[in-house]
Simulated scan of single mutants.
Amino acid sequence: MTDRSLIAAHLAHRDDIADLVTRRPLPGPGLPQIDPFLFLNHHGPQTYAPGNHGLPFGPHPHRGFETVTFILEGSLAHHDTGGHAYVVDAGGVQWMTAGSGLIHAELSPPEFKRDGGPMEILQLWVNLPGRLKMTEPRYTGVQADAIPVLPLGEGSDLRLVSGSFADAQGPVDSLTGVFMSVVSLAPGAEVRVPAPADRSVFLYAVRGAVTIGGTPLPQWHLAELSHDGDTLALASEAGALLLFGHADPIGEPVVAHGPFVMNTREEIVRAIHDYQAGRFGDPAGLRI
């Protein structure tokens, strides 16, 4: 086993949405994507007062990729034109395959708007290969108690969302074999996790700082890693929370326009036309 090395640490850009504190490490000036990982928004942490407006993500379309949303604090109510409706609470995850296209809303439940409270959410976009971009949309919502918590030693653990680890299987069945998890490192911990050399690794420091093979990755930074090994040596002096995943690179052209990610400009134009023609479904009733 050989440890991968850190090429660069990319700081998340602050880009608030309405009153929602938002940091975005990907895409960034020096890193347009980590194929197939396209985009990450880190919302919060912040505390909403009672009588708030909640999350600002009213009905909007997607085609050609998947959204994976981690609710670290607070809650999120999801409705979409595929007929899926679910409320994910703190510690839970939702995995939506937009595929051929749908419209969804991601808003705060009425109770959160009434009472307020802490909020921290991560949303990751994962690309689909051309052969799956027009697949039928699907949705999986998973609460915290359905996510295996696997010990890494020294008081640290890995919450397994998709893929396999230590003879356990994550509750989400990824179309493309994506491994996705949330890693919690205790103060002073030093652990190793598998990171196959032929796969793209996504590693973001949500809270706290870590070192990768002795090289610092500060809080709110995304790791750009070499392919020179098959494990990651992680250590944290004060403790840390990490978003950690890996996947096979797709190696296809990426043409993105707002909420659509396809392989060609012509496919983007078709997505816009299909959306405008109502082929993504009727968004009436998606506001919560």
Rank of each mutant, 00 (worst) to 15 (best):
G245K: 02
V206M: 04
M96V: 04
G74R: 07
V255T: 14
A205R: 07
P32C: 02
A235K: 14
P216G: 02
L26D: 06
V255S: 05
F260S: 01
L203C: 04
V88T: 15
H13L: 10
P27N: 08
E190F: 01
I212P: 03
N52H: 11
E66K: 12
R279C: 09
G130T: 09
L124D: 07
E106L: 05
N127L: 13
P118I: 02
L243Y: 06
G163E: 10
P27F: 05
R287C: 02
M262R: 08
G54K: 14
F57W: 12
G188V: 11
V161R: 06
P151K: 01
L11W: 06
F202A: 12
P36I: 00
A240M: 00
A8C: 01
T47N: 13
A8N: 15
M119Y: 13
H246D: 08
S200E: 12
N263Y: 07
R199C: 06
E224V: 11
D282T: 05
A189Q: 05
L158R: 12
L242Q: 01
A18P: 00
Q94N: 08
A49I: 03
T211N: 07
P187C: 05
D15W: 12
D35R: 03
P36G: 02
V161L: 04
D89M: 03
T22E: 13
A146S: 15
F165I: 13
V206D: 02
G153Q: 08
R265S: 15
Q169M: 08
F202I: 09
L38M: 11
P25F: 04
A247D: 11
L31Y: 09
G83W: 08
D3H: 14
G92M: 09
H62Q: 07
P118H: 03
V254T: 08
W220Q: 05
L6E: 05
H43V: 13
R4L: 10
D248W: 10
L72S: 07
V149T: 12
G44M: 02
V142Y: 08
Y48W: 14
H104Y: 10
S174R: 14
E237S: 11
I250S: 05
T140G: 02
A284R: 13
A9I: 04
H257W: 15
I121C: 02
G258T: 01
P216Y: 11
G44N: 04
L122Q: 07
T47I: 13
V68E: 13
P218N: 13
N52S: 14
S200N: 08
P118W: 00
A146I: 03
V210C: 12
G153M: 14
A144S: 12
D115A: 03
W125Y: 07
H62N: 08
L175A: 15
K113W: 04
I7V: 14
D16M: 05
P129Q: 02
T215P: 04
A166F: 01
S164R: 15
R23S: 12
G30T: 13
T135C: 13
G141R: 10
V201W: 04
A168W: 06
D35M: 09
G208V: 08
H42A: 12
